[in-house]
Design a protein around this nucleic acid. Structure first.
Length: 282
DNA sequence: AAAAGCACCAACCGCTCTTTA
DNA sequence: ATAAAGAGCGGTTGGTGCTTT
């Protein structure tokens, strides 16, 4: 997505990483900058972001380079809608760990903390708002467990039985629940294989290794749901005066879920890497 | 057809923790 | 032991494009 926030920043604050008075670029990255970064990391590896930025000839902070690499350019990044498995996992892990996005992201190979955070804020919190409950409340947690998780599982089962004839098989079917698992994250998906770095990633062994490491963890994580039982409303929940959902809320939750599902917004994966439109560079 | 509103998500910020010299 | 630099994290912002009015 092309953004318009293109500015330069003159850093004189000693706390700024660069600490120099050179003009630093901010805002959306240009194709040229991406290529510079990719090329540099491909040849020299990642790390030492501040000096990397300088050596690569980028007028960016090290932080900005790191973020761009980790959230967008890294070869094993997966893009597109989250699969039901991934959504389920996010809901589950968030209920365990709260807003520990990077921790959660480690269990979703190819997904970034930023992406998960955005998902939570735009999709999940929105639904909490619509239900008029706090997204961190027990009540909302119950809603997730009692309504949405079972439906996600249902959806997973459905697509599993359809997977043989499904055209979205490679990414989003549970059968292929490697979709979120790492075997997938190794650049074999259409998504990744057409990522900007796909062709030049060969010598980026570090990131590949990390993908492999993730995969083990990720895979095991997916097994969490193989024995998942939709929970009954807990006794505590039933007793709590503000824990019971009104029929209206329940039907709203249902409608929301069904709408989103039918619209495909919730789990269809657009398999095509949408290449960035040409950026307006400086 | 135009304006307003909304959703999405890339990128930034400030802070903390870890590593290095 | 300590200060500085590097790395990572979570929260927030704001531009773009789509949808609704």
């Amino acid at each position: 997505m092309s953004k318009g926030r293109i500015t330069t920043k003159s850093t004189s604050n000693p706390n700024e990483e660069e600490g120099s008075s050179i003009d630093l670029r901010r805002g959306p990255w240009t194709l040229e900058e991406d290529n510079l970064l990719i090329h540099y990391i491909t040849c020299n590896g990642e790390g030492r972001w501040n000096s990397l930025a300088k050596c690569a000839g980028l007028k960016r902070t090290g932080k900005s380079c790191r973020l761009r690499w980790l959230n967008y350019l890294k070869p094993d990044i997966r893009r597109g809608n989250l699969t039901p498995q991934e959504q389920l996992l996010i809901l589950e892990l968030h209920s365990k760990w709260g807003n520990r996005w990077s921790k959660i992201a480690r269990h979703l190979p190819g997904r970034t903390d930023n992406e998960i955070k955005n998902y939570w804020r735009t999709r999940v919190q929105k639904q909490a708002r619509q239900l008029n409950v706090d997204s961190n409340s027990k009540k909302f947690l119950e809603a997730i467990k009692c309504f949405w998780m079972p439906r996600l599982l249902e959806k997973m089962e459905q697509s599993s039985s359809l997977s043989s004839s499904s055209s979205i098989s490679s990414i989003s079917t549970p059968d292929n629940h490697n979709s979120a698992s790492p075997s997938l994250a190794t650049n074999k998906t259409p998504l990744a294989s057409s990522s900007p770095l796909a062709d030049s990633k060969k010598c980026s062994s570090d990131s590949n290794n990390s993908a492999c490491n993730n995969s083990i963890e990720g895979d095991s994580c997916y097994h969490i749901f193989s024995h998942y039982q939709p929970p009954e409303m807990s006794a505590e929940a039933m007793e709590s005066p503000d824990m019971n959902f009104s029929e209206c809320q329940i039907s709203e939750a249902d409608n929301w879920f069904n709408d989103d599902m039918s619209a495909g917004a919730f789990w269809n994966t657009d398999e095509l890497w949408h290449f960035r439109k040409p950026e307006v560079g400086i």
